[in-house]
């Protein structure tokens, strides 16, 4: 019985610790990125790099590899967001404009990532 109790305590403590740590780490997501260079990544490869401070307004259509789905990525007034997606959940559209280093726009069904690039003299 004591062994079970000890295990129970350990499990409770572990769950509490994970929750506390993730809560603290979540704060980063609300910080605005100082960067302007953005990468569009599909299937793990960078297919396009855009400098938001200099980019003209544009709509980029990105087909999924198998051609079954797509994303319309919009660049407008130095901001980037997904305007339209060919998937049912539309999470990437609801995410709105890219604003944080820690929170890239990810379209999981279409394997698309839009994120700030590390600016090291590119």
């Amino acid at each position: 019985m004591a062994a079970v109790k000890a295990k129970r305590m350990a499990v409770t403590a572990a769950a509490g610790a994970v929750f506390a740590v993730s809560l603290v780490l979540s704060v980063r997501f609300f910080r605005k990125s100082p960067h302007t260079l953005v990468e569009i990544v599909q299937d793990g490869t960078v297919i396009r790099t855009v400098d938001l401070s200099a980019a003209p307004d544009e709509t980029i259509r990105i087909e999924r590899r198998d051609g079954q789905s797509y994303n319309l990525v919009r660049i407008e007034n130095g901001e980037i967001f997904v305007q339209e997606a060919g998937c049912p959940d539309q999470t990437c559209v609801h995410m709105g404009k890219l604003h944080s280093d820690a929170l890239p726009i990810i379209c999981v069904p279409n394997r698309l990532i839009i994120r700030f690039a590390e600016e090291d003299g590119t």
Partner: peptide, 23 residues
């Protein structure tokens, strides 16, 4: 699974928010 499929660590950055909200 998302990291494995996308061959990128990018989905992992969501983990803290996912955990806080999911738990």
């Amino acid at each position: 699974a998302a990291c494995a499929v996308m061959r990128s660590a990018a989905p992992a950055v969501y983990l803290p928010v996912l955990l806080a909200a999911g738990m």
